[in-house]
């Protein structure tokens, strides 16, 4: 197995699948653009399998909710997940076949619930 995400995986790994923890959809491990998936493309939920603080695999294995969209310096979108059990945060890149409606709903959610009136920004 090659660790480089840009190289094409072998034919066995290309057909490898996992089941989504939330919606139960059977998903291929590799996205169509060749990268490895971090979340379900339908509901964008994920499973806590890697420990970002200590490194290596995590014992938590709980469901991770998508909470935010972040934009990298390159302009690519990133989904920020939070574990429902241990509250750890993790970020993963968006793949090409992710559910665009769910992504867009997360991107505009802060503007739907602003903590201050947005009318004043119309003049700027």
């Amino acid at each position: 197995m090659s660790n480089n995400p840009n190289s094409q995986p072998s034919s066995v790994l290309r057909t490898d699948t996992f089941d989504c923890v939330r919606c139960g959809l059977t998903v291929t491990t590799h996205a169509p653009d060749g990268g490895r998936r971090h979340h379900c493309p339908s509901c964008l939920h994920s499973r806590h399998v890697t420990d970002r603080v200590a490194g290596g695999p995590s014992d938590c294995r709980a469901r991770m909710n998508p909470i935010a969209i972040a934009v990298l310096r390159t302009g690519d979108w990133t989904v920020v997940h939070r574990c429902t059990r241990c509250r750890e945060l993790a970020a993963g890149p968006v793949s090409g076949d992710d559910n665009q409606l769910v992504l867009m709903r997360m991107a505009v959610r802060p503007l739907a619930q602003p903590p201050f009136p947005l009318e004043a920004f119309g003049d700027i």
């Binding site: 909470i67 935010a68 972040a70 934009v71 990133t78 920020v80 970020a91 802060p110 619930q113 903590p115």
Partner: peptide, 17 residues
Amino acid sequence: ALGLSVHENGEWQLIHS
């Protein structure tokens, strides 16, 4: 500050990296 998310009670949260 990397991004912005909304908590369950409706207040904004910054995601710092």
